[in-house]
């Protein structure tokens, strides 16, 4: 047992280290960090800062996926909540803006949760409804244009810094810590895993599976709302057509790279965030490399494939057998 913790996540950490090393090769100043206007400045900080929205989404997504669910609506929820925040920012104080925006995220999550847990609609279909309709709602809020704001308080959430760290990074760390505290500090995490593994048995064992299901979708909505606020605060405006577009897929990918199974029953919040950083480190590396943009997606696909192959138990066992790349035994049991 003592050895189990470090062994989980070895492939993700190694993948992240390899990508960062590759970035350093294509761009020798990659690890240079300096202070600019009291804010840390450098490519490594960019990876963390730009990765924040997907990391936030993946924190919510990982719990949903652990319950054998999926939340396709997070990108659209980002657009809705960003639009609300930007529309209210100049006329209302920050607490009101945040309450309205996070409240909208909660409501979206509640909607998804009720469709899945009470009406028993398959998660992929239930959340698809809001994925499609949500962007329309966001466009209604912004009336199809890019709503800009000047409120320095809201702008701080995207462009400000706390002790030199850009605010989006701080918010992501805070959200991650809070989520870890709630699910790992209590038995909730265990219940989520149990329900994801076998909902019927869990219900018979006395777990309130329906309530937990609603709760994880609500949490995912909340994370998406926070990501939407960060995205809006970053560009000082809400772009309903593009905010969070396709980010639900990046979030799902981050969760999967983080080793959480789409069949539920097992999850790691920390590694999902590492997964998000792997994706962003790759994006930033491509931008720094100077490769033509036509190759962006191909490079991404190859790297993701490599990371996922490294996680495959069969290939992992082969590599372990050869003892070439990863010295340790990787034949860990997959449930």
């Amino acid at each position: 047992m003592a050895l189990r913790l470090p062994r989980i996540g070895t492939s993700q950490i190694v993948a992240l280290a390899l990508i960062l090393a590759a970035n350093w090769v294509v761009s020798p100043q990659f690890f240079d960090i300096r202070l600019q206007d009291g804010r840390l400045f450098g490519s490594l900080i960019d990876v963390l800062n730009r990765g924040a929205p997907v990391a936030l989404l993946s924190i919510g997504m990982v719990l949903v996926i652990a319950m054998r669910g999926i939340d396709l609506s997070v990108g659209a929820v980002m657009a809705i909540c960003g639009a609300i925040a930007a529309s209210l920012a100049d006329s209302h104080p920050l607490p009101v803006v945040l309450a309205a925006s996070l409240g909208a995220g909660l409501a979206c999550g509640l909607w998804n949760g009720l469709l899945v847990a009470v009406l028993r609609i398959q998660p992929i279909v239930a959340t698809l409804i809001l994925m499609v309709a949500g962007r329309g709602i966001a466009q209604l809020i912004t009336e199809g244009r890019i709503v800009t704001f000047t409120s320095p308080e809201l702008a701080f959430l995207g462009g400000g810094s706390v002790l030199g760290l850009p605010t989006p990074i701080v918010l992501t760390l805070a959200m991650m810590a809070l989520t870890l505290l709630i699910v790992r500090g209590t038995a909730l995490g265990l219940m989520i895993e149990a329900t994801g593994g076998n909902p019927r048995a869990s219900a018979l064992a006395g777990i309130g599976t329906r309530l937990i299901t609603v709760a994880v979708y609500v949490w995912s909505g909340l994370c998406a709302a926070l990501a939407g606020i960060v995205a809006s605060a970053d560009i000082l405006g809400a772009d309903a057509n593009n905010a969070g577009l396709w980010l639900e897929l990046d979030a799902i990918l981050a969760v999967v790279i983080g080793g959480t199974s789409l069949f539920g029953g097992r999850f790691s919040i920390l590694l999902a965030v590492v997964g998000a950083l792997i994706i962003q480190a790759m994006n930033t590396g491509i931008l720094l490399s100077g490769l033509p943009p036509e190759t962006n997606l191909v490079v991404k696909a190859v790297v993701v494939l490599a990371v996922l192959l490294a996680q495959s138990p069969r290939i992992g066992a082969q590599i372990a057998g050869l003892g070439v790349l990863f010295g340790r035994s990787r034949s860990r049991r997959r449930s």
Partner: peptide
């Protein structure tokens, strides 16, 4: 064609 991506790409250009 978006603000967010324009900003992200420019950040990398500046560093590079």
């Amino acid at each position: 064609f978006t603000r967010a991506k324009g900003k992200e790409v420019m950040e990398s250009f500046i560093k590079a």
